[in-house]
Design a protein around this nucleic acid. Structure first.
Lengths: 226, 226
DNA sequence: ATCTTTCCCACCTAGGTGTGAACC
DNA sequence: ATGGTTCACACCTAGGTGGGAAAG
């Protein structure tokens, strides 16, 4: 009876895989969340900070998925394709392509792959709520596994891959969203990007407050000391 | 080639399941980590705080596992068995059983089951590092899914279950550790338990510092104000 | 009165921000 | 000089501690 209770606990929300045959994903649909926010950044050319130890992305890549087989197992992967072979420069308030990159033979450079930490999991799990890639970290140095290595001042487009896990691995989906393109930077170039990041990223709230304070009065807050 | 790279990324560390037949777990071994620490608490009768919103356990239940099939899929579950039918009381510095509990018919009362968030996953995943149940929360009210409901002033013993997930669910392992027994309380009874919690739980460091400060000098720290 | 529970709190851990100076 | 990168830092988010007063 203990055994029974346990197995039923597993069964609720964690169904066993299909006994035979391939899963079917009919009408598979993958939708980018927060698309309006992404477009605000895209409109002025998005930038993402890269650091030695890895920096999260903002906005966060988030997708809602439907049409998977609830009882089959999938992994969600993210990788980053160079959007072009160019090195970009920010001059006079706009981004301009500055010649071909070094050794960027138009083919993919290897950025590594980020495996969503919920992987592997059942279709039911992936579909019950939006899948959030908030823990991806971008870096410009070789690092611990799981971080994405990108070249500063190059443009990238994130690609989402859904892979069926089981006796036969199959690539189920392979989508990307134009809205999420960005140029990797070690420091923000366009101050409008900085303003948007501060406005919408809760972790940058310190600077949002500072801005409000400055609107109301003088420039610098008093240094505090005991 | 893109496809190839992706699938090989999945394959490294995320092997596909066996094509046919049941997984074999020969010489399966489950070891409690931090056993010495657990025994320090056990020696003076461990207590765990329960709250309406759920309270984490300390020490944290952590096990290292070997002998699973690296390529098969398992889920790790935790539930909490009443260690006896008694309600306990702390009087004169020691715990005494105070008669049979209300409606505690010696059978299991239903505490709910905690599913380790890495579930389901491959044997290789569970074995590559100790499996930590630091996010389990104990509560005394019905709450969001995943929290463990216990009766205050009753004694419990955590039980770990490893379940094979796949075409056939099997209970692979069912172990518990005497060292991890505890009495659920809404406030600590034994001040020696409080002292141990403060000494070893990093989140209680505030009170460790206070203790040190008091040893060196006067009772109360100055109130800080700008 | 006594025992148990609840609530708010100061104080931590842990770690994600852009800044601005220093560095290369 | 110039442009890109690194680093320490103040300031947040998010949430885990036991204490102590208050309530039941």
């Amino acid at each position: 009876s203990c055994m029974l209770r346990l197995l039923s606990a597993v069964a609720s929300g964690l169904q066993a895989g299909r006994e035979k045959g391939d899963p079917t994903e009919r009408g598979l649909q993958v939708t980018l969340e927060d698309a309006e926010l992404w477009r605000k950044f895209q409109h002025i050319t998005n930038e993402m900070i890269v650091t030695k130890n890895g920096r999260r992305m903002f906005p966060v890549l988030k997708v809602s998925v439907s049409g998977l087989d609830p009882n089959s197992m999938y992994s969600f992967l993210l990788d980053f394709m160079p959007a072009d072979g160019c090195r970009w420069k920010f001059v006079n308030g706009e981004w301009v392509a500055a010649g071909r990159a070094e050794a960027c033979s138009e083919g993919r450079s290897h950025t590594g792959v980020y495996i969503h930490p919920d992987s592997p999991n059942f279709g039911a799990h992936w579909m019950k709520a939006a899948v959030t890639f908030n823990r991806v970290k971008l870096t410009n140095q070789v690092n611990e596994e799981g971080q994405i290595l990108v070249k500063s001042l190059h443009k990238y487009e994130p690609h989402l891959h859904i892979v069926s896990v089981g006796s036969r691995q199959r690539l189920v989906s392979n989508v990307s969203f134009q809205e999420t393109q960005f140029i990797a930077v070690t420091a923000y170039q366009n101050e409008e990007i900085t303003a948007l990041k501060i406005k919408y990223n809760p972790f940058a709230k310190a600077f949002l407050d500072a801005k409000h304070r400055n609107i109301g009065g003088q420039g610098l807050p008093e240094p505090k000391e005991a």
